[in-house]
């Protein structure tokens, strides 16, 4: 299994710092913003964005987790059902601007599921999408608002994100399957 390093801890830090600035620029501050990450590593990146924004603006935004598993479109098709993770919506999301965070954007199906999950919790004013890596191959009309790095991949490859606080070390690598 060949593996190619595309981002190290420094690279991830720079990308998330830029995304944090872009979020603040686009929304003209922190008013009404809620950051929600998709477990496990999307949630990790959401927490990083929360602390970067706190350093820049002095405001600690509400952050939480959206587990999209119960809304997936491949349940009942896959041989095994995925392990359920926690849903943590810290405040009522009606009228809020949600920044949805995931580590890797691929087919877009997880994001579709996460948006459906969010709609069951209320009616946000808008949902924006931030991803650390966009690897292409979308199967649904979904486009990220903030991208850490565009990494063109083939379908034979996989993208693996590791974060210090979850995996003990940070890196993004492209793995060639077989």
């Amino acid at each position: 299994m060949k593996s190619r390093l595309v981002m190290d801890e420094k690279g991830i830090e720079r990308a998330t710092a830029r995304i944090a600035h872009e979020i603040l620029e686009r929304n003209r501050g922190t008013e009404g913003l809620v950051i929600l990450g998709i477990p496990t590593r999307g949630y990790g990146i959401a927490l990083r964005l929360q602390s970067i924004i706190e350093v820049i603006e002095g405001v600690r935004l509400p952050a939480g987790a959206v587990d999209a598993t119960l809304y997936r479109d491949d349940l009942g098709i896959k041989k095994e059902q995925p392990f359920l993770k926690k849903m943590e919506i810290p405040i009522a999301i009606d009228g809020k601007t949600i920044v949805l965070v995931d580590d890797v954007l691929f087919t877009g199906r997880t994001i579709r599921a996460a948006m459906n999950a969010l709609m069951d919790f209320g009616r946000p004013r808008s949902i924006q999408l931030a991803v650390l890596v966009d690897r292409g191959h979308r199967e649904l009309p979904i486009k990220p608002d903030y991208v850490g790095k565009n990494i063109p991949t083939s379908l034979k490859e996989g993208v693996k994100v590791r974060l210090q606080e979850i995996d003990g070390s940070s890196e993004v690598s492209v793995i060639e399957k077989e």
Binding site: L70, D120, F121
Partner: peptide, 24 residues
């Protein structure tokens, strides 16, 4: 037990329903 721990939150929502087992 851990699956139930994740699912308990559904009953606390305003809309107490998830689409997971549609058609079953």
């Amino acid at each position: 037990l851990s699956t139930a721990g994740s699912l308990r939150e559904v009953s606390e929502r305003e809309i107490k329903k998830v689409p997971t087992l549609r058609g079953r």
